[in-house]
Design a protein around this nucleic acid. Structure first.
Lengths: 110, 110
DNA sequence: TTTTGATACCTTGTATCGCAAGGTACTAAA
DNA sequence: TTTAGTACCTTGCGATACAAGGTATCAAAA
């Protein structure tokens, strides 16, 4: 077990909340994939393209997200994702679930 | 998307913290597998045998846990797991990582 | 005009991990 | 000696994150 293990541990923990993070960010502003990656990177949540694109597609297929194309002055067009009503409802459920887990861990650690 | 989905969301979120939960529980008292399952169930963290046994073996192989056999008056012998020094060190790292993620989510959700 | 670099999209193959289901073994009571 | 309870463990499957590689658009440099 080496130093990478700390990153590995964090990576494991992040896995369960990635979808929650995506919906949370999109709840505040619509965004396109590369933008999302950067925003999450700033928040120290590392996501790579190969993770994010399938995830966005999954969430879109579940009816949580929609998207629209927008031209860019600096490259190819961008696919802006935004929450649907269903997405907002699920986000609220996730809020509850997250709060519950944080409380549970608090108790377990005491 | 039905009511099961809420459980599914919680299940996803729990995934990342299962190892952390195990080490946390064992940090307080040695325990055998069936006992661990019950303790976690009380804390609303559902784990099944097919998940727990391989996980304990992984953690043992990583040097985080050791075990000893103890006779039982009520059935087959029990395999009591306990934290090693390395396990305690990793648990501290997990504490930090968890705190960090909770803070990050707090910020993301604001 | 062609090439290069930047941006942005997406797919494929691999590894990990949780879960459902099934299997073994010990003990005590019926 | 069979059944019930407890405890251990394995196998096969599905979901998902990641690494790596691929396609397409645009603008600026060669």
């Amino acid at each position: 077990m080496n130093e990478n293990n700390i990153e590995n541990i964090k990576s494991q923990m992040r896995k369960g909340v990635l979808e929650y993070c995506i919906l949370s960010v999109l709840d505040k502003n619509d965004a396109y994939a590369s933008e999302l990656i950067n925003k999450l990177k700033e928040a120290r949540i590392i996501v790579v393209e190969g993770t994010l694109y399938p995830l966005l597609t999954r969430q879109k297929n579940q009816g949580l997200l929609t998207y629209r194309w927008e031209e860019s002055t600096q490259g190819p067009p961008r696919k802006y994702y935004s929450l649907t009503d269903k997405g907002r409802t699920v986000l609220q459920e996730m809020d509850k679930a997250w709060t519950e887990i944080v409380e549970t861990l608090d108790i377990l650690r005491k």
